[in-house]
């Protein structure tokens, strides 16, 4: 039987790359995102690349109404399915510092909206006793850095939720992979200063699918970010608080 993927935040470059990597395997794909008109173009593309069936569903982290339709569609799926959550947003830290009321939205986009969605999908997956959840967190969630700690805090919350979900869903045969990308060449990082070792979205998608196949728990992508973040996590707080990274 071929695989089914619900891709949340399907317009992102990493999501597009993941969908394209699964299409030649005759995957069934549900593309969920805000710009459904644009997602229809992805759907057409993925069909030409070999996907068995592609559907487009509206999903917006700021519009809880869209969640119910997505969950209902998932409930109607026959057999196990996988969920990959790419939805998220990263406003500049300085913008949030100027207007702290933006924090709630950042948390909603990167943690609570998609977290709620996963909690609603969890029973469906438990009932099917199989499938994989891919949650895209970030290296930014590993430590609160000077330039990026609002986004990082939201991603840290999401990563902790994924960790708990892994424990819960593992008991029913559902696996949860936490993906922590470093710098990836996407619209989010395009033109930002200080980018280095920027990975192609296709390379990240390949890493994600390898992690799914090997049932890895937490993966950094590209792999060397595991080392970079191990060092950053090990810096004692009295020193870390003075660093500019």
């Amino acid at each position: 039987m071929t695989e089914t993927w619900i891709i949340v935040g399907a317009s992102s470059a990493m999501a597009r790359a993941l969908a394209r990597a699964t299409a030649p395997r005759s995957a069934t794909l549900l593309l969920c995102g805000r710009d459904t008109e644009d997602l229809q173009r992805d759907a057409a593309d993925l069909r030409l690349r070999g996907a068995q069936a592609v559907e487009v569903l509206a999903y917006d982290t700021r519009d809880p109404g869209t969640e119910a339709a997505l969950v209902a569609r998932a409930a109607a799926l026959e057999g196990p399915f996988n969920v990959a959550v790419f939805a998220g947003a990263m406003p500049p830290q300085t913008e949030v510092e100027a207007d702290p009321s933006l924090l709630a939205g950042v948390v909603q986009d990167n943690f609570t909206a998609t977290g709620t969605l996963l909690l609603r999908l969890a029973p469906l997956m438990e009932a099917r006793g199989a499938g994989t959840v891919v949650g895209v967190a970030s290296v930014a969630g590993d430590r609160g850095r000077l330039g990026n700690h609002v986004y990082g805090a939201a991603k840290a919350g999401f990563a902790t939720l994924l960790s708990g979900l892994r424990n819960r869903l593992g008991r029913s045969g559902v696996h949860v992979v936490t993906v922590k990308p470093g710098f990836v060449d996407t619209a989010m990082t395009w033109g930002l200063d200080g980018m280095f070792l920027v990975a192609a979205p296709e390379a990240v998608a390949k890493d994600i699918l390898a992690a799914v196949r090997r049932r890895r728990n937490v993966v950094y992508t590209p792999w060397f970010w595991a080392g970079i973040m191990a060092i950053i996590r090990s810096v004692p707080e009295p020193i870390f608080k003075k660093l500019q990274i």
Partner: peptide, 10 residues
């Protein structure tokens, strides 16, 4: 002079 790189038609 810079480059934009849109990912959606809109």
């Amino acid at each position: 002079a810079g480059r934009a790189r849109p990912e959606k038609v809109a």
